[in-house]
Design a protein around this nucleic acid. Structure first.
Lengths: 233, 233
DNA sequence: CGCGAGCTTGACGTTGTTCAACTAGAGTGG
DNA sequence: CCACTCTAGTTGAACAACGTCAAGCTCGCG
């Protein structure tokens, strides 16, 4: 599963996740978590988790971006979401039957900390505040996925691509101007349409002065118009 | 919010939820939960929870069926799911900003127990096992919604309607033969297509001997074929 | 008997997918 | 340095899928 290349531990003192969880657990508990976790680097296109494997770890991505990918029985890829960093991934899947129901794949070089689930579970069991926080976290993930699903299921391609662009700019790249780590095909897998449709829509948006699109470089010019398209579906 | 009509407490001794939660909390704690909860009957089409109102309760539906409905800014209705009973609803929404992000509406007469969230939260904080169980429950809801979303977003209407039929028969009515509580328009809001499209597909499925459809009475004849259609999208 | 709501049907135009051809850049080997 | 190939991106045209519209149907109810 760990198809990684490099194994140098990071400087944990600045880690956001450490900062978060140490509000709720003791120093010695964190030490245990630290000792049982793995700090790894992943290169672009490497699997951080692979669909179907046993879910033994949660992944805290401290640096880099990744995609959540679901592969259907018929071999089609569906991108469920793109994550920026820092971000904690795997909470939703883990507690099911202990199997990863989708893959997490680096779309650029990433620094990742794999956290042992059983250890974390033992903390949750002992620690009400922590579990409430995790419940909150899960609720929010759930909510996001619901709205994502509403967008995909009940809008047509214009609106979906507007949504994807808004999401990428706001959440993933945190700038109206960004350089994509994704191919047009991957964008199509994310937006739930054909690759050609992504391209057609991009050129239309470009002509209408809503975005500027040159290869991997995207700039959102008319945010207001994009919001309107998203709203009207 | 409580637009209900009838207010006779039920016999809680046979309640599934009571049975579940009493594995993790004490008798006196349950008594507190019971005293702060409301047992209500809802008639068809009544709101059990209304989108936008403060989320102060979870709903345990002990009898009857309900739909989760999301109303968009532009006034379009989207049915997120149909629930059978018994079922606990509202866990996912609750912990966000304390506002119901969608409505729950009875599609037939229901018996519902409204459970105070703050009380439940106080139990979670004290009780690790309970919180783990709730995390598991939420994870599963999350997983279901993901697969639902995959179906809607990446299949065409044939496959989506097949999915809806399979879901209704398996989860909601638990029989290959059932009498719908939903109109064609509502089915369309669930499947994410037009009402006419639902009808066209039903008649096609009927002609092909996959289902028998007479008004509200639906029977799944060729389950295998339906699964194939669902798989192929 | 008339009315209205929900359901059904078919025609038509829009939207989106598929297909095929073309372009541009990157990597490879002579 | 120049073919050659391979991949990603782009374009337009043909075709299929889907939504919209309009008309007719059925059934229950006043």
């Amino acid at each position: 599963m760990l198809t990684t290349s490099n194994h140098t531990p990071f400087d944990c003192s600045i880690c956001v996740f450490k900062h978060f969880i140490c509000q709720y657990i003791s120093a010695s508990e964190f030490e245990l978590l630290y000792q049982t976790s793995q700090q790894l680097k992943f290169r672009k296109n490497e699997y951080i988790m692979k669909q179907g494997t046993k879910a033994s770890h949660m992944a805290f991505i401290s640096k880099g971006r990744a995609k959540m990918n679901y592969e259907t029985d018929s071999g089609k890829n569906i991108i469920l979401t793109i994550t920026g960093s820092p971000n904690l991934i795997g909470a939703g899947i883990i507690l099911n039957e202990g199997v990863n129901i989708f893959s997490i794949i680096a779309i650029e070089d990433c620094e990742v900390c794999l956290i042992d689930i059983d250890i974390l579970k033992s903390f949750i069991e002992k620690n009400g505040q922590l579990s409430l926080k995790l419940l909150e976290f899960l609720s929010n993930m759930f909510k996001d996925s619901i709205f994502n699903f509403i967008s995909l299921a009940h809008k047509q391609v214009n609106g979906r691509i507007a949504d994807v662009l808004i999401y990428l700019s706001k959440t993933v790249y945190q700038s109206p101007k960004f350089t994509l780590n994704l191919s047009r095909k991957e964008l199509a897998e994310f937006a739930g349409c054909s690759q050609e449709n992504v391209i057609h829509t991009f050129t239309k948006f470009d002509k209408d002065g809503i975005i500027r699109s040159e290869g991997k470089n995207i700039e959102i010019v008319d945010q207001e118009m994009l919001n309107t398209i998203s709203r009207n579906g």
